[in-house]
């Protein structure tokens, strides 16, 4: 349904034809982006691309500073995530949970204190086999084939919350109320959401398009979050996976999460 040459000429009539005769309509061309109109940071000319994005979280670095929430703040400010101040209406893209909840079922009585008290950063796992996209009745959430990001279309979501029910990681939030009054400082370059739709982490796909790393990765003072292409053997994430023993959340469910944790 893109506005292509033919459609554009059809609707805009003779003037457009005259214009076409003069300069040639180049509506679809993407190749030479010479004079991109004012991106605020980064550039669309140098996007970050991958066959499959993945993240490795080094918990030993993450727990260095107790109570650190830099990644959460960076993400939530960047994406206009509201703060309702209560768990009922809560919306979160990235948050922290105690080990026993993050790795539900893998804790035990004699686990080291260090691990027991680790606050694990959690976000959408961008599963290779996501159950949320399977249940969506409108394709409002889907896995992007080009790089594996589980996307959200807030224009299309009907708010049935089936995806929230299907996600085994609690990664999805629903806008129970109008979020706008609860956003402390609105970032003008990113939309807010409307009440009645589901939202979640999108691996900062809008930043990747401009060649920027995800906000949480960029912000982490301990450099605990590594982000890269899982299918590139030379990538940082692959190097970390080679060198360390890593675990994923609920691997037995067959969702193939793309967030790996070094305990």
């Amino acid at each position: 349904m893109s506005i292509d040459r033919r459609k554009f000429m059809k609707v805009s009539g003779l003037t457009a034809l005259a214009l076409a005769g003069g300069k040639g309509i180049n509506v679809l061309a993407q190749e030479d982006s010479t004079s991109v109109a004012a991106p605020k940071t980064g550039s669309f000319e140098t996007p970050l691309t991958a066959k499959r994005w993945a993240m490795v979280c080094d918990l030993s670095k993450c727990r260095e500073k107790e109570g650190c929430d830099v990644c959460i703040k960076a993400c939530h400010e960047r994406h206009n995530v509201p703060d309702f101040g209560n768990p009922k209406d809560e919306i979160k893209w990235i948050w922290k949970e105690h080990f026993e909840h993050a790795f539900h079922g893998q804790e035990h009585e004699y686990i080291t204190d260090e691990i027991r008290h680790t606050n694990v950063p959690l976000l959408c796992n961008h599963c290779d086999n996501p159950p949320c996209t399977r249940v969506c009745p409108t394709e409002a959430t889907w896995k992007r084939e080009s790089d594996g990001i589980v996307m959200m279309d807030w224009h299309r979501c009907i708010g049935c919350r089936y995806c929230v029910v299907a996600c085994p990681y609690g990664s999805r939030s629903f806008n129970w109320r109008d979020p706008r009054p609860h956003i402390e400082k609105i970032d003008e370059s990113f939309p807010t959401r409307t009440r009645g739709v589901v939202e979640k982490c999108t691996f900062c796909e809008e930043r990747l398009a401009k060649g920027l790393l995800p906000a949480c990765v960029e912000a982490c003072p301990a450099k605990a979050l590594a982000f890269g292409d899982l299918e590139d053997p030379e990538s940082e994430v692959r190097a970390l996976l080679r060198e360390h023993f890593t675990i994923r959340r609920r691997p037995e469910l067959g969702t193939a999460p793309e967030i790996f944790y070094i305990v």
Binding site: A16, L19, A20, N26, V27, A29, Q30, S33
Partner: peptide, 11 residues
């Protein structure tokens, strides 16, 4: 990026 008929490019 949107490539306009007059050669300009826009986000």
């Amino acid at each position: 990026i949107f490539a306009a008929p007059d050669g300009q490019h826009f986000e």
